[in-house]
Simulated assay, not measured.
Amino acid sequence: MDTVLSIKNLSKHYGRVKAVDDLSLEVQRGNVFGILGPNGSGKTTTLGTILNVINQTSGTFEWFGQKGDQNTRKRIGAILEHPIFYPYLTGVQNLKIVCDIKEVPYSRVEEVLKVVSLDERKDSKFKTYSLGMKQRLSIASALLCDPEVMILDEPTNGLDPQGIAEIRDLIIEIANSGKTIILASHLLDEVQKVCTHFCVLQRGKLIHTGLVEDVGKGSLNVEVKADVENLQAVLEGSGMASHIKRELDKYTMTMHNGYSAAQVNEYLFKQGITAKHLVVKTKTLEKQFLEILAGQEGGQS
């Protein structure tokens, strides 16, 4: 796959504060790449730097195999801040102003409004839009120049569940059209639903990068509940689990390789026990994220 973005040993210091610290990573064409990290981890500073909004202290980055210039910048659409448009102008009028700035024909306005499902509200004033609609108009603005890459900084921040779902579906639709997307977010569940790849930053350092589809791979966890006082002892007697943890009225078994939930059910049945609840627990991105951060903190202690 083609490398769209290559970052090498990138650093940005504000005095003694290392906002970005020797960061190296690559984003391939077609990726939906999520940048995760707690507040102050360097997500927004990284995006600002690769967009030439912030000057790096050291290191380099390349877009499409070359250092960024004006022509390269036209191939990238970005949203770094909250949507800012003229409140007393309509959606169409605001986008035409952006067209003038980006030297894009007005014919693109109708096209992008349909993509973000705002064509029916195109003549409504911006001040009448909901937060979700304002965010969608911002995405429409970034799409006007038909960029190859979209950069989104916290695209669902402050939205209600419906607004989050709308933006999530829109991101997936844009990605399916062939565009590469780089987004920073603290909503781990949303990243898991829309991204193909992700990285984790902490204090400006890259501490993990990988495929979203690999999240949850590894040890199988089985959650069990039954009306038996000594259930933990019974489960330990099966020899199937390397670890058993009680969580309220249920037990989570970390299984040895080769054992399954069906075998746990069969074992309990032979003991005269009927499981009231028996499910395979899939590790979420949130759980893996917290494990990565905890491992990093443990390594520094």
Score class of each variant (00 low, 15 high):
K102T: 05
K102P: 02
K102W: 04
E103H: 10
E103F: 00
E103D: 14
V104F: 02
V104P: 01
V104N: 05
V104K: 05
V104D: 03
V104I: 14
P105D: 13
P105S: 08
Y106K: 11
Y106G: 15
S107I: 15
S107K: 15
R108K: 14
R108P: 05
R108Y: 05
V109F: 00
V109Q: 01
E110P: 02
E110M: 06
E110R: 11
E111Q: 13
E111G: 03
E111C: 08
E111I: 08
E111N: 05
E111P: 06
E111F: 04
E111W: 03
V112W: 00
V112E: 00
L113H: 04
L113I: 02
V115E: 15
V115Q: 13
V115K: 09
V115P: 01
V115T: 15
V115W: 04
V116W: 04
V116D: 08
V116I: 11
S117T: 12
S117P: 03
S117C: 14
S117W: 03
S117E: 13
L118E: 05
L118D: 04
L118P: 07
D119R: 00
D119W: 03
D119Y: 04
D119E: 15
D119F: 04
E120V: 14
E120Q: 14
E120F: 09
E120A: 15
R121K: 11
R121A: 14
K122E: 10
K122A: 15
K122I: 07
K122C: 06
K122H: 01
D123V: 03
S124H: 12
S124E: 11
S124R: 09
S124P: 01
S124V: 07
S124T: 06
K125C: 10
K125R: 12
K125Y: 11
F126Q: 10
F126M: 14
F126R: 11
F126W: 08
F126A: 13
K127S: 12
K127Y: 09
K127W: 06
K127R: 14
T128H: 04
T128P: 00
T128V: 04
Y129G: 06
Y129N: 04
Y129D: 07
S130T: 11
S130M: 13
L131T: 10
L131H: 12
L131A: 12
L131S: 12
M133Y: 08
M133C: 11
M133S: 10
M133A: 12
M133L: 09
K134Q: 15
K134F: 06
K134N: 08
Q135F: 11
Q135R: 09
R136A: 04
R136H: 09
R136Q: 06
R136N: 05
L137N: 02
L137G: 04
L137A: 06
L137F: 03
